[in-house]
Amino acid sequence: MSVESVQTALGTEHAALWTYGMVSAFLNEQAAAVAEGSTLHRARRDTTERWLRDHGATPNPPAAAYLPPAPVSDGPSALAALVAVEQDTCAAWRGVLERTDDSGLRTSALEALTTAAVRATRWRKAAGSAPASITMPGVASG
């Protein structure tokens, strides 16, 4: 059960990495923050794949491309895509939290959920969204 949820989380990490790569052309002013987000998602993807292999599962490969909820053609739509992919990541890692009693996995899922929520907030701030904060990251209505 936890393996399945970790595969789902890995899927959102693949999507996040792809999205950060795709939006970088539109966010020159935030290049450093985009690069940082990329690096952190790459690290998370690697540790997640390692966890799956250690638990006898084959990590799901990334898709060739992903479809953001809205087309990305400029700075604001690029920020919206980043917010969306970080919120997907929050939901997936919250799903892991709810399905494991393994304390190591839980700690890393909590860290992934928290850092994704902070990045989503940062992008919402950059986009001028109000409120910038997300009250319950990982919950559809939050």
Binding site: A109, L110, L113, T121, V139
Partner: peptide
């Protein structure tokens, strides 16, 4: 909230995890 998450049964860990992340989000604001 983060310290509490590790000791909770799984069905409560999601709720408290989201509260911890929500506070981190507020802190970022």
């Amino acid at each position: 909230a983060s310290a509490t998450v590790t000791s909770l049964p799984a069905y409560r860990a999601g709720l408290v995890g989201s509260v911890a992340a929500g506070c981190a989000s507020l802190r970022e604001v």
